[in-house]
Amino acid sequence: MKPGIPAARLLCLAGLFTLSAPAWAIDCKKASSAVEKLICSDRNTVSADAELNRAYNAVLKQAPGGDIRAMLVDSQKRWVAARGRALDTLIGTPDALPDEKSAGEILRELIRNRTAELKETGKGASLPAIIGRAISQQKFQSQFTGGAHAGYWTSCDVLPRDYRNYACFAIRHYQNNDRVCTVDESWASGRVYTNRYVANIVDGKPKVVASCSFSSEDEACSDTEGKAKWNWKPEQPDYVYSAKPLPKIDGEIHDSDDFEWARACLADAAYPPAQ
């Protein structure tokens, strides 16, 4: 995999950020799309959709600030869009259906899984996990200056083959003064791939000075015991950074594992260390 953002991914992400349809429960009297009609064709699915709406509204009421509330609204719109894409595929291409499941059964499972995600709380926590992660992100970022290049570039989808799992992956840019440290995470062929980039702001734009990469089976980027394998001459130094401001938080992204590395990268102008 090459660093940078593929054109198809850019188009997909652009669509996510421009979604404006409200993410409320389906009104079956006004159902028009194939997905809406599928929901309304089964009372168990209608009931599941109503429970999802209640869970979503309950989470919104617990948002401790406008930024987190806006993040929750955007994340639910994103999920509705991903659900629609997946069901359009299954309705339009019956051969894509897993042998043991109908499109309606998969839809109910997606809705119930999403409801469980919104209701999830961490051990000993009073707030939903999606809010807790956003608060943790805000707390971590408050240690640094931030900047125009900081933020989350997130892509979410219902994963194919079984179409039961909804997952989000993100490029995370952390900035402190003229240093930008990036974690670029993606999923392909059942494996998570991660690239890290260290960049300095030159003439107002990040310029990559070092990179490394790893997958679930290759810890080449590990900073333990001096084993990190940094490339000081990246093959593609003109890594693509967003030209528009990015969201500063995303509670659907599990990024606490970034924090130790990002802190070291942002605080030390000489990072990564010479090898």
Rank of each mutant, 00 (worst) to 15 (best):
R85N: 11
Q175L: 01
R83V: 14
Y174P: 03
G190N: 12
A116H: 04
D203C: 00
E117S: 14
R191S: 11
T194V: 12
A96Q: 15
A63T: 06
G104T: 11
S126R: 12
T89L: 04
A63N: 10
D162Q: 08
E185A: 08
A170F: 00
D157Q: 07
D67M: 11
G122F: 04
S189W: 04
S136A: 15
A63P: 08
A150R: 12
A134T: 07
K119F: 01
Y163G: 10
Q141Y: 02
N200V: 02
M71L: 09
Y166C: 02
A116D: 15
G92D: 08
N200P: 00
E117G: 10
Q76W: 00
N200D: 12
R112M: 09
L159V: 05
A167K: 09
D95M: 07
A188S: 15
A129N: 05
H149Y: 15
K119C: 11
V73E: 15
D162W: 02
I201K: 02
D178I: 05
T145V: 03
L110N: 06
I111V: 13
G65F: 01
D74A: 15
S142C: 03
R179N: 07
I68H: 04
A188N: 11
G84L: 08
Q138L: 11
R161V: 14
R114N: 15
S155M: 04
G190H: 03
I91V: 01
T121I: 02
N113T: 12
L90V: 06
E185C: 09
R114T: 06
I130F: 05
P128F: 10
S102I: 07
G151W: 11
P94H: 03
Q175V: 08
P98V: 10
L110R: 03
Y166K: 03
D88A: 11
N200T: 09
K101S: 05
T154P: 11
W187C: 01
R78G: 04
E120I: 03
D88T: 07
F169K: 15
C156R: 06
N113Q: 12
K119H: 06
A82F: 02
A70H: 10
Y152G: 02
W153K: 05
G104A: 13
S142D: 09
T145M: 02
G65W: 03
S136D: 07
D99A: 14
Q62W: 02
M71S: 13
S186G: 05
E109L: 13
T115C: 00
K123R: 07
V192E: 10
A116Y: 09
Q141T: 14
D99M: 03
I131P: 13
G84A: 07
I106Q: 08
A63V: 10
A82P: 06
V80M: 15
R164F: 10
V183P: 00
N165T: 13
S142G: 13
H173L: 04
P64R: 10
P64D: 07
G147M: 13
F140E: 06
R196D: 08
E109K: 09
E185D: 09
A63G: 08
S102E: 05
A103H: 10
N165P: 00
C168D: 01
